[in-house]
Design a binder for these strands. Structure first.
Length: 658
DNA sequence: CTCTCCCT
């Protein structure tokens, strides 16, 4: 043997069992090429299916190879639970305590320290950090994972990291490296966008899944799903569970009932069946039931929305039944309306659903559409950034000091109409100045950007000291910025109504919610009270966290925090300052029309004002489903609206005269 | 006479 070169280290100890396990992953093959690429280049695209181990291994490879030791390696995730569980797993693999070398940051939870070098965080969290530091100077490497999901935050981050990378290169210090990790989609688009970054492909470890299409197109996907479930049920061993993808709560509850009824009258020798609904607004304890194994001799049938596509993973699913339908939001910039409609899934989404059958073993997927129909599905789901109101995004870009937000380098550009509509909304709220195609943030706008909220909510908070009702506005905004705290099981409607009566305010939903919050605080957040009053305890706990965070921001901005106590007029006057563009008037024929565009709208049946006919209302949002519904309403005096935004209403009056 | 889903 040759002499070791000077300074060479001694032979490293033999790899441990855990280390051998890590080396056996298929991704280990990609280690060399990836590291040499990232030593010489700024960015790389990594394509690999779930199960390739890329998310847990790549950050460790980079760290172990000493790439980016001078800073932190960030790994973003679209979901909180993913960020938390990945950090836990990687810190276990490194045999370190969570929060030391490996940590995570999500809203309300920060498990990092001075020592942290690998940090998992939600994409929304990194975006928020970027407002304080657009160059992301803490980070040496940013890994954007699950990029194919194209969440609105990931899409904005694409532009933010691309700009930061260039700027840091131009400055000639702390180079930033960017890794985009995605499933097998969008590859060319990613590479093009990141200056023709090289693409590495990784092998996955999926189990084989057999796919069956229907021979004929199905006119009734619910009927088809029902037939499929019971066909599988009569043929397959009872230990094999079924996951059915449907579109919404109502549909799922109805189907659950039908399945249970049919299951009662099955022929002898047929296994028993447990049917479980699954959707986001279901109380947490009921969601947890889908993880429990069914008793022996029983088959588990889960009827789910797209929550089971990515957010919730259930073990032991052998069969997936895909109706090919999904309920999703579309944005029409012309009308400025968000439309929630049942529509076809994309091919990418269909593959995601199919994959849910092969997580531990081979699986079977029944697609309730023909192969020809499938071929006509869109390749990808339209990125969220092209389907949403952009007011928040534009405010964030302005806060990031992007030179010209109107020409921001999006990977998939939203329509100019959507961008204009967002700027218009910010202008009405007083957040921006517009001069010859230049949009800049006002001091008010900069304060608004400090809140993790929709601009109209931040505006209300900032106006509240003037009305001496900041305590109440903080509560109302918190209640409105989480999923509904009200649990409305359709089968117990009468019970819900009678129990809720005591909280109802004739002034509308905002004050009704405030009453419920106050009652909840009076019993110190009692769980039993929540159950009895059909209040979603988990969401209510979230409200407390949100409120505390918003209150902190108010204190940092030195806002005086007062309570209006029983004066509800002041609260509504304050709300008018941010909802004045969302108002509707009662017409002689008993319908409502918006003041802004004379759109025909209706009061949503979930509103406490549903059976009332106030002359003038303001609402939080319009949602187009069967009808165009106003959600979360508040009774308002026309005079207050005029006081809140005189210019706006003067313009409206002038437009009406012409 | 009713609300896919995630996130700061």
């Amino acid at each position: 043997m040759l002499l070791a070169p000077p300074g060479a280290k001694r032979q490293p100890p033999a790899p441990s069992a855990g280390e051998m396990q890590r080396r056996s992953l298929p991704i280990f093959q990609a280690r060399g090429p990836l590291l040499s690429q990232l030593r010489s280049l700024d960015s790389a695209i990594l394509i690999g299916e779930t199960g390739s181990g890329k998310t847990t291994q790549i950050p460790q490879y980079l760290y172990e190879a000493g790439i980016g030791r001078q800073g932190i390696i960030a790994v973003t995730q679209p979901r909180r639970v993913a960020a938390i569980s990945l950090a836990t797993r990687v810190s276990d693999e490194k045999k370190t305590e969570l929060g030391k070398l490996v940590g995570y940051t999500v809203r309300f939870e920060d498990f990092t320290s001075e020592e942290t070098r690998i940090k998992f965080l939600t994409d929304g969290m990194l975006l928020r950090e970027a407002i304080g530091d657009p160059l992301l100077r803490k980070y040496s490497v940013v890994i954007l994972d699950e990029a194919h999901e194209r969440t609105i935050h990931t899409d904005v981050l694409f532009g933010v990291v691309k700009a930061a990378l260039k700027k840091r290169k131009d400055l000639g210090k702390f180079p930033l490296k960017v890794v985009i990790m995605s499933a097998t989609m969008d590859v060319d688009q990613f590479s093009q966008y990141f200056n023709r970054a090289p693409v590495l492909y990784l092998e996955g470890r999926q189990h084989p899944i057999q796919i069956f299409y229907t021979k004929q197109p199905q006119s009734d996907y619910l009927q088809a799903a029902l037939v499929s479930v019971f066909q599988i049920h009569q043929e397959a061993p009872s230990s094999q569970d079924i996951l059915v993808f449907l579109t919404g709560q109502e549909e799922i509850e109805a189907m659950t009932k039908t399945c249970r009824d049919i299951a009662k009258h099955l022929p002898d020798g047929c296994p028993q069946m447990v049917v479980m609904p699954l959707y986001a607004s279901l109380p947490y304890t009921q969601q947890l039931r889908v993880f429990q194994a069914a008793p022996k001799g029983y088959r588990k049938v889960i009827l789910s929305t797209n929550i089971a596509e990515t957010s919730i993973t259930i073990a032991g699913i052998k069969y997936v039944v895909d109706t090919g339908m999904v309920k999703a939001k579309k944005f029409s910039p012309e009308s400025g309306l968000e439309v929630l409609a049942v529509q076809r899934v994309s091919k990418a989404q269909a593959w995601q659903r199919t994959g849910r059958a092969g997580r531990e073993d081979s699986g079977i997927c029944y697609r309730l559409y023909t192969e020809d129909e499938f071929e006509k599905f869109d390749k990808m789901t339209i990125p969220e950034i092209q389907r949403c109101n952009l007011a928040s995004v534009m405010l964030q870009l302005l806060a990031l000091r992007i030179p010209n937000v109107l020409t921001f380098d999006f990977m998939s550009k939203p329509s100019p109409d959507a961008i204009q509509a967002a700027i218009e909304q910010l202008d009405l709220l007083g957040a921006v100045d517009r001069k010859e195609d230049q949009v800049t943030l006002t001091p008010l706008g900069r304060k608004m950007a400090a809140f993790p909220l929709e601009p109209k909510f931040s505006k209300t908070i900032l106006m509240s000291p003037k009305f001496h009702c900041t305590e109440e506005i903080l509560t109302i905004v918190s209640l409105l910025s989480v999923d509904s705290i009200l649990y409305n099981p359709p089968s117990r409607r009468d019970e819900v109504q009678s129990v809720r009566k005591k909280f109802i305010s004739s002034e509308g939903d905002h004050l009704t919610l405030l009453n419920i919050y106050r009652a909840f605080k009076n019993v110190s957040g009692n769980k039993e009270w929540c159950r009895e009053n059909f209040v979603n305890n988990r969401n209510m706990m979230l409200v407390l966290d949100v409120r505390a965070q918003l209150r902190d921001i108010c204190l940092k901005l030195s806002l005086p925090i007062e309570s209006s106590r029983s004066d509800t007029g002041n609260i509504r006057r304050c709300l008018a300052h941010s909802l004045f563009m969302n108002t509707a008037e009662l017409q002689p024929d008993g319908t409502y029309a918006t003041v802004d565009s004379h759109q025909l709208v209706a009061i949503h049946p979930s509103s406490v004002l549903f059976h009332c006919k106030p002359a003038c209302v303001m609402y939080n949002e319009l949602l187009h489903t069967n009808k165009c519904y106003m959600r979360d309403l508040c009774v308002v005096d026309a005079d207050w609206l005029y006081d809140a935004a005189p210019d706006y209403f003067r313009r409206k009056l002038r437009a009406a005269k012409n």
